[in-house]
Amino acid sequence: MLEIYGIKNCNTVKKALDWMNANEIAYTFHDYKKEPATREKLESWEKHTTWESLVNKKGTTWKKLSPEEQAQVTDASSANTVLLANNSMIKRPVIELKDDVILGFDEHIYQEKLLKK
């Protein structure tokens, strides 16, 4: 079973969950509002993707940070500190696979990695 992390009312998360349901893929959803991400979880995702990919710089939470705060995000440790304080800044959704992580919604990637051929 897949583990999917995000925020329930996020449009991208909704698209991902709708796709999972339409393709009858079992998953467990973890809502950051109810289950905040942990440092251990962020570090486990960073084994499969970069810390830069996890930071959603297009979202309003990032844009609300001052330029000084944004400039302090220079490595995994500083990024994780900011992400832990602002879970809504984590790219959504994060989908955990056995040996991989998928970020965001991309139907082609979902088909390739999640549907059995």
Score class of each variant (00 low, 15 high):
A16H: 00
A16G: 04
A16Y: 00
A16R: 00
A16C: 10
L17P: 00
L17K: 09
L17S: 03
L17N: 04
L17Q: 07
D18T: 10
D18A: 13
D18M: 07
D18S: 13
W19Y: 02
W19A: 05
M20T: 06
M20A: 09
M20F: 13
M20K: 09
M20D: 09
N21F: 01
N21Q: 14
N21W: 01
N21T: 14
N21K: 12
N23C: 01
N23H: 14
N23E: 06
N23V: 03
E24R: 08
E24P: 00
E24L: 01
E24W: 00
I25Y: 05
I25H: 09
I25L: 14
I25K: 15
A26F: 03
A26R: 04
A26Q: 10
Y27C: 05
Y27G: 03
Y27M: 09
F29Q: 04
F29K: 01
F29I: 02
F29R: 02
H30D: 02
H30E: 02
D31R: 04
D31W: 04
D31E: 05
Y32A: 06
Y32M: 06
Y32Q: 03
K33I: 08
K33Q: 11
K33L: 10
K33G: 07
K34F: 01
E35V: 13
E35W: 03
E35H: 10
E35Q: 10
P36M: 09
A37G: 07
A37P: 08
A37S: 12
A37C: 07
T38H: 02
T38A: 02
T38D: 01
R39M: 07
R39K: 13
E40C: 08
E40D: 13
E40S: 11
K41F: 05
K41G: 09
L42E: 06
L42I: 10
E43C: 05
E43V: 12
E43D: 15
S44H: 08
S44I: 03
W45C: 07
W45I: 06
E46L: 10
E46Y: 12
E46D: 12
E46P: 08
K47E: 14
K47F: 00
K47R: 13
K47L: 11
K47D: 06
H48T: 07
H48F: 14
H48L: 12
H48Y: 12
T49I: 09
T49P: 09
T49H: 05
T49S: 11
T49V: 13
T49Q: 06
T50V: 02
T50F: 00
T50A: 11
T50E: 14
T50N: 14
T50P: 08
T50Y: 03
W51G: 13
W51S: 11
W51I: 11
E52F: 00
S53K: 13
S53C: 11
S53N: 14
S53W: 00
L54V: 07
L54K: 11
L54P: 15
L54N: 14
V55A: 15
V55I: 15
V55D: 15
V55L: 14
V55W: 14
